[in-house]
Every structure is written in C-alpha cells, then in structure tokens.
Amino acid sequence: MVELVSVAAVAENGVIGDDGELPWPSIPEDKRQYRDRIANHPVVLGRATFESMLDDLPGSAQIVLSRSVDAVDADTANVAGDVAEAVAIAESLGADTAYVIGGGAIYELFQPHVDRMALSRVRGEYEGDTTYPAWDDADWELIESTEYDRFTLEEWVRVGAE
C-alpha cells in the first residue's frame, strides 16, 4: 500500500495560494526542502497545478488528477480520474510513498486518505483564494517541528496510521 503524504506551505490564516501563485515572497529554504523531499517519488496534483509547473516538473512522476483531460503532454505524467486510480498508478510505479502537492481541491479530496502531512507553516497572514483543508486534531499527531527563518516545518502523522 502506498503511503500518501500531503505537502503544503500554509500561512497562519490557512491560505496556500492566490490566483495560482504563492501569496508570499519566495522562501528559497522552503522550496529547497520541498523539492528534496519529493524529488524521487511520484506526486499527485491537479491539472492546473501541473500546467503551472510544466517548465520544472516535480517528483519522479506526476499523477495528474483531472475530470476534463485524459492525457497530458509529458512523458513522466499519468492522468487519474479519482483518488483510487491515483493510488493504483502510484502502486504500479512501484512507489512506497506518493506526495500530494495541490492545489486546493486536490488537498481537499485527498485529506481523508493521507497518512502524513508535511506542512511549512509560513509566518504571517496573507490574502488568497485557496486554503488548506481543515482537519480534526484528534485524528492527527504532530511528531516533529523544525524552526526555520520564515517558516516552521511540521510533520504530522494520522493517529492509528502505520
């Protein structure tokens, strides 16, 4: 079974995006740890997020969740119609872990299914049109918290997930 890990940068007010962009100035240290984490694993993302990253595709393979397209123009990309199909594709790639990297609707769709979350808690509140989904604290345990200059990296694990 593939472990699903949600990875996101989240402002103090829950905002993760504004019109397809990060609403805060670039944080190179966060971008670096994010890219290092997902580099050798398949990533699950929505079509719009995929298209915004075409110049520098993340992960070893991309699983694009879409109801409107059945193919994308990238050799490393696969298209899935739902969560189960995305997980099946990740398993077919031999992956132990697949990272869910957005956007907002994809995080929402996968939230009941993810085993872990790696959240960069960006200092400050920002205006935006996309937020990270809420979760029940009783279902999650914070297992690690690492302070950086402009964010705190939090590692969450679903209670009872092994």
Rank of each mutant, 00 (worst) to 15 (best):
T76G: 01
D75W: 06
A61H: 14
D70N: 15
L57T: 05
V79I: 06
V64I: 03
L57I: 10
R47Q: 11
S66P: 03
D73M: 11
G59I: 03
F50W: 10
A48M: 11
D56W: 05
A48I: 09
A48C: 11
D56P: 02
S52A: 14
A74Q: 05
L57C: 08
T49L: 09
A80D: 10
V72F: 04
I63A: 04
A48E: 10
L45H: 11
I63T: 02
T49K: 06
F50Q: 02
Q62M: 15
T76F: 04
T49P: 07
D75N: 13
R47L: 15
V44Q: 06
G46F: 00
A61I: 09
V72S: 05
D70A: 11
V72K: 02
A61W: 03
S60M: 11
M53P: 02
T76I: 13
A71G: 13
R67D: 06
G59P: 06
D75M: 13
A77D: 10
L65W: 02
S52T: 12
A48Q: 13
T49W: 07
A61Q: 08
R47N: 06
F50K: 05
D75V: 14
G59T: 08
L65G: 01
V79D: 06
Q62L: 13
R47V: 01
D70E: 15
S66G: 04
R47F: 04
V69E: 10
T76E: 13
A74H: 10
V44I: 15
E51W: 00
D55F: 00
G59D: 05
D55M: 05
D56S: 14
D70F: 08
A77H: 11
L57F: 06
D55W: 03
R47M: 03
D73Q: 14
V79R: 08
D75I: 11
G46K: 00
A74F: 09
S68P: 08
F50L: 04
S52P: 08
V79S: 09
G81K: 14
I63Y: 01
D56G: 11
G81C: 12
A77N: 10
S68I: 11
V72C: 08
L65V: 14
G46Y: 00
M53Y: 01
S52V: 04
E51D: 14
V72M: 08
I63E: 00
A74T: 05
L45A: 13
G46D: 03
D73V: 12
A80Q: 12
R67W: 02
Q62G: 09
V43L: 01
N78R: 14
L54D: 01
V44K: 06
P58T: 09
T49R: 07
D73F: 09
L45P: 05
A74S: 15
S52I: 04
S68E: 12
G81N: 13
V72H: 02
V64L: 02
S68K: 14
D56T: 11
L54V: 12
Q62N: 15
S66H: 04
R67T: 13
A71L: 09
N78V: 09
F50G: 00
L57V: 10
G81A: 12
R47D: 03
D75R: 14
A48K: 15
P58Q: 08
V79F: 07
S52Q: 07
A77R: 09
E51G: 01
S60H: 08
G46R: 01
G46T: 01
S68V: 14
A48F: 05
L65N: 00
V79A: 06
S60K: 15
V79Y: 03
G81E: 11
L54C: 08
V69I: 05
G46I: 00
S60P: 10
R67H: 14
A74N: 08
V44N: 07
